[in-house]
Design a protein around this nucleic acid. Structure first.
Lengths: 208, 208
DNA sequence: GCCCAATGTGGGCAGTGTCCACATCTATAC
DNA sequence: GTATAGATGTGGACACTGCCCACATTGGGC
């Protein structure tokens, strides 16, 4: 039952997951193929079925891995700031930056409808990433840099904001050419939407 | 050359498009199949190739049709308000409402990367929808209910906002069960992000 | 009325996801 | 130390897909 104990191949499950993540980064979720993953892992086209129910199940595991990495990126970014509002801002920027760095992986995480049943910690990992955001919002409210009220609603607001940017950017809908410009726009949106701590708002109003 | 003149079947192209839109609504973009579209149109599995280059080309045409409908929904909604800011707000809400009404169609429009070349007015229609948003923003700036500055940047801000809500909602990531709740949340986000015309903000602060 | 190009058809090919029966291995009970 | 049972990997098969080819049919311009 222990998935970490190698049997024949030696941790095939982990190898398959890694191969899947790489393949998706190369060809995207649509061209992603179970058989190609098996080929890259050096096993027969049927071996993956011993570790994943079907194609969607593998993709779900890939998504879960993505949520874990996304969460880590946000936590790491937030840890480098001291004021709560700055922590929230850089976490949001990190969200967008992650999407720009791994656009195909990001698509796998969010294009498919959220699963209902057990899914290799897919929704578990997603929930944890949201909790990270939630606690950042709560800290802002404690600090007074965000109005009182439902923390969940403000966290959702922040989420929809960065998610909208990330999705439009990764599908090439924003009129910016470089990632730097996109991140600048992300900061603009975030600044624009968060009430500023000092009233003398002199920060950059528009990007570019 | 005129695509509206029927040859054998009688406007097969339009029939195929219609069948494709319906099929996508039923089974989603992934399970969408060229051959099934042909079956529903009552032609051989090869007939679609006389009207569309390949599968992606058909999906592109479906997306273009979606953009046209989305644009119409926003224009219609905006026309029912008089104050510019209200027009912008209801247009945003209409954007989310469209996504909720046709989630699969919406996915086809935005999940695939934006095409580069000619694409049956895909990008043309998308551009027009954005222009609708842009002129609403400009009207708000003229009215004084939105700060001066780059209209394009504010329009992009508004777009990312409603797009984030729409995408998270249609993939089941928001903790709301009914569409009414989601639309209420959308209004909350929009109100929260737009500077209010009168300073005595007494509007609903949090949804639900 | 004839002809050519536009349109539709059937067959075929390589590739896919998934099922099945079978082979192989390893942990564990004796 | 070995037999055995269950976990793991394999090869074959089936229905299906997107797309290519050669061919059939059709209708409008000469």
């Amino acid at each position: 039952m222990n998935p970490h104990k190698p049997y024949h191949h030696g941790n095939l499950r982990a190898d398959l997951l890694q191969a899947a993540v790489r393949l998706i980064a190369e060809v995207g979720p649509t061209a992603f193929t179970l058989r190609e993953v098996a080929r890259r892992a050096g096993v027969s086209h049927n071996a993956p079925y011993r570790h994943f129910q079907d194609r969607d199940d593998l993709l779900g595991a890939v998504a879960g891995e993505g949520f874990r990495q996304l969460n880590e990126a946000m936590v790491t970014a937030a840890a480098q700031e001291s004021r709560s509002q700055d922590r929230l801002k850089v976490a949001g920027t990190a969200y967008v930056a992650f999407a720009l760095r791994r656009p195909e992986h990001f698509a796998v995480m969010f294009d498919a409808p959220a699963p209902n049943g057990e899914d290799h910690g897919h929704q578990e990992a997603g929930k944890q990433a949201f909790d990270t955001l939630l606690s950042l919002v709560r800290a802002c409210q404690d600090e007074g840099s965000l109005p009182e009220g439902s923390s969940a609603d403000f966290a959702l607001l922040a989420w929809t904001m960065v998610h909208g940017i990330a999705k439009l950017a990764t599908t090439g809908r924003l009129p910016y050419r470089s990632n730097a410009e996109i991140l600048k726009f992300a900061r603009f949106v975030i600044d624009q939407s968060l009430p500023r701590p000092s009233q003398g708002g002199q920060g950059d109003r528009t990007p570019r």
